[in-house]
Design a protein around this nucleic acid. Structure first.
Lengths: 229, 229
DNA sequence: CGATTGCCGACTGTCGACAGTTTTACCACA
DNA sequence: TGTGGTAAAACTGTCGACAGTCGGCAATCG
């Protein structure tokens, strides 16, 4: 073999039908093509997507475990509708995860981690300036994923990833208001500063503030979306 | 209708085959009928249980989301094998959840909650004295579930329930040593005392101690169970 | 004798079909 | 017009079958 620049194989692996369906459904829900509380018919979906019901079921179960769908026995799947209380719960849970994460991270804040986070904030700022709402959200989530990652607990990261789907849902659904780029920037730079300071108290304060802002902007956006399911 | 003592219908609704299979698999894994790292064949299972592969697949996916199984594409499902690092992660994650929970709970510690927790500790002590290992674990988990419940965040409770399956796995697998009943009792009474005191610091200290003890007894039990999967 | 290639069995991913249940549409009747 | 009951339609839960893929084994080549 001569080729030394072969891309690392991740290229080929086409994903399952189930995963493709899951991606499609996630997109459709986030983009509100399916409304909160709406019922999803397995047969209809499988017809529309040109696959059998098996992958659809599997995808639906996956999204159920991620909190995007709810299944009622013998009734089918419904798009999750978050009420005000559940919205609070989501952000409270996020606070729980990130407080712990930043607490762990400050004790092991390597130059590597520092560099990666700084860079991601820059990418995020760029996205914010570019005024691309979807990308801004993704880069924002990615920053927090990085934080969780460098906190060093894989389990914690998994929990955040699960939550992030719900989070994306809340944010996309409710806040059409693009926050000003500099607001986003400063909010994240504060986190970096707190980490640099090495003070757990400062970190705690910074993350509380950070998530509080996000929560308020979402909660204020709508008192309640969707009702029953 | 005359019969006034009809059981509240939860009786009748036999759960899905999928759920039954999930319960069976969970039991089998916890009781080590399937060893960590072992591969589970869908066909074999469906033959053994007398059902088709569909419910088996569904159950396996559920257990995957709970962290009891791991799926490799086109290879099937494997019983999760926790190494030392992952074991630490599990207890660290538990600490994350329960710290937050007790922090929330102390601010809204109603007489109802107080009563329920006290009662559950008594039930737990009873189980501990009775020397029934399995029941002791279940009642212990139930106490913590109650704590999470009264903390008032449904999302938090769900996360704990997911984690509890892994937790049960660790505990059952590793600690054959039954802790002395009075150790268990005092450890839990300390939590109640801290809550009664109303001091967040005391609560934090109590929960850190409580989980630390559990973690040590598990980690010390075995440096590593299972290796690869 | 070691490494590579091709074949074989086993298994997963996917499919279409059937049965029981829930929902809906409709009609008789007050 | 409103109500109650019945029948049809639609859907989910479950099943067995088929095809593509993966791992292991044997035959082949260096």
């Amino acid at each position: 073999m001569v080729s030394s620049t072969v891309p690392p194989k991740a290229f080929i692996q086409q994903q399952n039908l189930a995963e493709q369906v899951a991606d499609y459904l996630t997109q459709a829900i986030v983009k509100q093509h399916f409304l909160p509380g709406e019922r999803l018919s397995e047969v209809q979906l499988s017809r529309d997507l040109g696959v059998s019901r098996a992958p659809v079921r599997e995808a639906a179960r996956l999204l159920e475990s991620r909190g995007l769908l709810i299944s009622k026995p013998r009734r089918g799947f419904f798009v999750r509708a978050l009420n005000a209380v559940e919205l609070e719960d989501v952000f409270d849970f996020r606070l729980c995860l990130e407080r712990h994460a930043i607490h762990c991270l400050v004790g092991r804040y390597t130059p590597d981690a520092q560099r990666a986070l700084k860079q991601q904030v820059e990418v995020l700022c760029e996205a914010a300036i570019g005024n691309d709402g979807t990308r801004r959200i993704e880069e924002d989530l990615q920053f927090h994923r990085l934080m969780l990652h460098y906190a060093g607990n894989e389990r914690l990261l998994r929990a955040f990833n699960d939550l992030s789907h719900e989070l994306r849902l809340c944010i996309t659904l409710i806040t059409k208001t693009h926050e000003a780029p500099d607001t986003i920037a400063t909010s994240h730079f504060k986190l970096l500063d707190a980490l640099d300071s090495g003070s757990p108290e400062a970190c705690r304060e910074a993350i509380d503030y950070h998530i509080g802002v996000a929560r308020d902007s979402v909660v204020k956006g709508v008192g309640e979306i969707g009702v029953a399911y």
